[in-house]
Amino acid sequence: MPGQQLHIDLKSATAVLSGPDHTDKKALGSVDSVCNKGIVVKENGVRHGKVNWGNTEYSFSDQSLSQVFKRIEKRYGITIAFKDAEIENYRFTGKVMYKDSLDMVMRHLCQLYDLKYTRAENNITIEKVSENLRK
């Protein structure tokens, strides 16, 4: 988010996120590797995949849809819920462009995994497309 800073200590292999005033610090876990301007963070021994960022896109490498949609929530100021829990564990590698509309991002991600989404104001619900809709 704007104003936040990510502090990486390669000697201790840790990552800490701090807010705009640098006082509200959150330990993200251990840094597994830093490469190609991307950071791989481990939290409680679980690898969370790699996120690259720049001024134009979020780039994801082998991340769960849960993690991808958390980024989308922050980017667009919305809340996303999954009707089917297994969807959260689907893996995604790809890019989300900052200039893309929320509708475009949701439409494309849902098409990839045969999902559908419904939106009510700032709340989105994602679910699998039922077998009856495919026929």
Results as ranks from 00 to 15, higher is better:
A27W: 04
V105G: 01
M104T: 13
E86N: 10
G29C: 02
N89C: 03
L109V: 02
Y58L: 12
L28R: 01
L65A: 01
L102Y: 04
N123Y: 06
W53V: 15
Y58N: 11
G3A: 07
G45C: 03
N89T: 13
I72W: 06
G3N: 14
N89W: 05
G94D: 01
S18Y: 05
T118K: 11
S61R: 10
R71N: 12
Q4K: 02
G19R: 03
N44I: 03
G45T: 02
G19S: 12
F69A: 00
D114R: 13
S30T: 13
V40D: 07
K95F: 07
E43M: 05
I72P: 02
M106S: 02
Y58V: 04
E127K: 14
G49Y: 06
L10I: 10
F92Q: 02
G94T: 03
E86D: 15
S101H: 08
K11M: 04
K50M: 15
R107G: 00
K128Q: 12
N132S: 11
R71L: 11
C35H: 15
S66Y: 15
I72C: 05
L10H: 13
R71K: 13
L102G: 00
S61M: 06
V40K: 05
G19N: 15
I126D: 00
E73W: 07
P20M: 08
V129E: 13
D114L: 10
E43R: 14
T125N: 08
M1A: 14
T93I: 07
K135V: 12
M106A: 04
T118M: 11
I80M: 04
E86S: 11
H7F: 11
T93G: 06
